[in-house]
Design a binder for these strands. Structure first.
Length: 213
DNA sequence: ATCAAGATTACCT
DNA sequence: GGTAATCTTGATA
């Protein structure tokens, strides 16, 4: 079942194809850019969440002082050192989680941080996870997934999902059979103190679902 | 044992 | 634009 149809909350049908394992076995920057426009799917308790990835950041374990993995393998960052295609989720600032896609070869320590998405399916449940209510305004829909901490809260990504394989059935990423065209903006990464000279933050131009335009 | 920092967010002026 | 909230981790003693 790598080829299937998904109906969004606004009634549109998307033809989706699950990404192959090889997709993740490339450079962090390559994968981070390639993830833009892809559809993140999470199945939980019989319900499906789906969202279009609109903003990512690359972290390279071998050369990048901003990467968690730069200091070497520890208990916290161990997932980053696995082979590409896993989900790396970590806890930060005492109250938020951030989710990454592990990239490259085993031992490399590279990943792409998922920073923002456009909600497509399961919006009521996402709203409940974020705001404890199911009714959301147009403005609130935009702020459902536009930040790394927010999207983890809305999609219920926690410690439990750390290390999960994206080639499985619970959480995975798809491409559309007929992908939309878009331009990619490359800027410096947000919220870090080192490696700020690298333009390794990527987002879809004019998306409207971005943490900081 | 203690401690500072952190890939953030919400709410304030 | 500023800052409080909140706690795990990794480093140092």
């Amino acid at each position: 079942m790598n080829d299937f149809e998904l109906t969004t909350d606004n009634g549109k049908t998307l033809k989706l194809i699950k990404l192959k394992p090889a997709f993740y076995l490339r450079n962090a920057t390559t994968v981070a850019k390639a993830l833009l426009g892809k559809i993140f799917v999470r199945k939980i308790n019989g319900e499906i969440f789906a969202a279009r990835i609109t903003e990512t950041e690359a972290y390279d374990g071998r050369t990048d002082p901003a990467a968690h993995s730069f200091i070497g393998k520890t208990k916290r960052n161990a997932t980053m050192f696995e082979s590409g295609g896993l989900l790396y989720v970590y806890f930060i600032y005492g109250m938020y989680y951030c989710a990454n896609v592990v990239t490259g070869a085993a031992g490399e320590g590279s990943a792409a941080l998922l920073r923002s998405m456009e909600p497509l399916k399961g919006i009521e449940q996402m709203a409940f996870n974020r705001f404890k209510k199911r009714e959301v305004s147009r403005t609130e829909i935009k702020s459902l997934l536009n930040g790394p901490g927010k999207l983890c809260q809305a999609l219920n990504l926690t410690k439990k999902e750390n290390g999960l394989n994206l080639n499985g059935e619970e959480i995975f990423i798809c491409r559309e059979k007929r992908p939309r065209k878009f331009e990619i903006v490359e800027t410096s990464r947000i919220g870090i103190n080192r490696g700020t000279e690298l333009d390794w933050r990527f987002y879809i131009k004019d998306s409207g679902f971005i943490s900081k335009p």
